[in-house]
């Protein structure tokens, strides 16, 4: 490819009009809207479909929806879901999870568990503030994730 350099007129070569144009641009930006979000006070609003912290859904009787089918644990690419199944105490299903842990330090928030789930039990919420101080705290247990239920999409940032 041949690069054609544009022919400069005298006014271009003096350079000063271009400088003034540049200065005008920056001063225009000086008075323009600022794009900064002052984070701790002003929360970022996640887009619909944002994949944040997991939750486990409950059914209309308040029981965990999960039937411990291991679909999510199987599809999980980072193998961060650990489920321990047991006989369900209810009539309408065979199994339920005694233990359901997600290691959020391993999790890559790909949302495949959500897609694999036949019961719409595991879902990703909009919660993105997951910082903590111990490694243990990042292993979300069943009760934690059932607890995040109330946040669900209703947690508006």
């Amino acid at each position: 490819m041949r690069v054609v350099t544009p022919k400069l007129r005298l006014i271009d070569r003096i350079y000063i009009p271009a400088l003034i144009k540049g200065l005008y641009t920056t001063i225009k930006h000086f008075f323009m809207r600022r794009f900064t979000q002052e984070y701790p006070e002003e929360k970022r609003k996640p887009f619909p479909g944002y994949r944040g912290l997991h939750r486990l859904n409950k059914d209309h009787l308040g029981r965990v929806k999960c039937v411990a089918c291991f679909m999510c644990a199987t599809i999980c690419p980072s193998k961060c879901i650990e489920i321990e199944a047991d006989e369900a105490p209810w009539e309408d299903r065979e199994k339920y999870p005694v233990k359901f842990e997600i290691n959020t330090l391993r999790c890559i928030f790909c949302g495949m568990c959500e897609e694999a789930c036949p019961e719409l039990s595991i879902q990703l919420t909009h919660i993105y503030e997951m910082a903590d101080v111990t490694r243990e705290a990042f292993v979300r247990r069943k009760d934690d994730m059932l607890g995040t239920n109330e946040f669900w999409v209703l947690k508006e940032y």
Binding site: T26, I27, H29, F30, M32, R33, R34, F35, T36, E38
Partner: peptide, 10 residues
């Protein structure tokens, strides 16, 4: 702060 304002920051 002037730098921030010019660059659309605070």
């Amino acid at each position: 702060r002037g730098a921030g304002f010019i660059q659309g920051r605070l």
